[in-house]
Design a protein around this nucleic acid. Structure first.
Lengths: 125, 125
DNA sequence: GTCGTTGCAAAGCCTTTGCAGGGAA
DNA sequence: TTCCCTGCAAAGGCTTTGCAACGAC
C-alpha cells in the first residue's frame, strides 16, 4: 500500500461517500463533487473510488437498473429497494431471505444480493 | 409489430435461447451460434436478442458478476446462483424471500431479484 | 420486386490508461 | 525536492446505429 496524500479532490469524494445514507452512482458523486469543487474531473472520481474499493472502504455493486453503485463497506447486512417512480435507491435493513429453502443439495452459498423494486413510501402517498 | 422473416441467423439464435436451461451471455450465444453458422455476426445477435426481449420472448437482466444475461421469459419464478469456481450461472426454482419482513411501511414492492453466489455441487465435490 | 435482415464500419457510452504538469509532504 | 495525484486526451470494452447489399416471401 502506497502512502496517500490528502488532496482537495479526495476529501470531497470521501465526504460525499461517507455521508450518504444510500448507494451512489458515479454520476451522483461527480455532480455533487462538482458543486463543491468545480474543477473535479470524472477520471479522478473513478480513480479515487477504485482506490477506496481496493482499500475496503467502499463496496461496489451492479444494480440491475441503475448500473454500478458505491456504498460504504462497513454497513450492517442489508439489501436495496429501487423506486421506479423517483428512481432513488434505498437501503433496507435486515434480510428476508431463507437461504436453506432456496439452496439445492450440494451447493455452498457464500453470499447473496437481493434487489427489490416498486414504489417508495414518498411516491406512493 | 412488423412482419418478421425467418432467417438462418434468427433460427440459430432462437434455438440456442429456447433450449438453454440457464441464462446465457452474449458471448455464450455468439460462440454457440458460430459453431452452427460460422458467418453469424455479433451485431445480428444483439439485434435479434433485443427484438426477442421487446417481443416478450426473452428477459434481459444484469448479473452483478457476469454482466448482461438473457433467459426465456416464460419460466416460473426463480432466482440465480453463480458459481465462483466454474463461473456458471444456475437457475434455482422457487423463492426463499419473505417480502413482508423486508419491506418498510409505505413501500410497495412490485418485483425482486435474488442472486446467490458460492460453489456449485459439481465444483464442491 | 419489396422490404425486412444481415454484415461491416463507425459511433456512443462507460471505464481505464498514458503522460506531463501540479501540488502535498 | 520528491513523487503521488490530477486533468486531459486517448484507448478499450460493450452496445447501438447508418448504410449498402442480400435474401425471404
Amino acid at each position: 500500500m502506497k502512502k496517500q496524500r490528502t488532496t482537495q479532490q479526495r476529501k470531497v469524494i470521501e465526504e460525499i461517500c461517507f455521508s450518504s445514507t444510500c448507494p451512489l452512482s458515479i454520476d451522483d458523486i461527480e455532480s455533487r463533487g462538482k458543486e463543491i469543487l468545480a474543477t473535479l474531473n470524472r477520471v479522478t472520481v473513478y480513480r479515487n473510488l477504485n482506490r477506496m474499493v481496493d482499500a475496503g472502504e467502499l463496496t461496489r455493486f451492479s444494480h440491475p437498473e441503475k448500473g454500478t453503485l458505491y456504498e460504504q463497506a462497513n454497513r450492517p447486512h442489508h439489501h436495496h429497494f429501487f423506486c421506479k417512480t423517483c428512481e432513488a435507491t434505498f437501503e433496507l435493513p435486515g434480510c428476508g431471505l431463507s437461504l436453506k429453502k432456496q439452496t439445492p443439495a450440494g451447493f455452498i452459498v457464500e453470499g447473496h444480493e437481493v434487489f427489490l423494486n416498486g414504489v417508495c413510501a414518498a411516491c406512493a402517498s
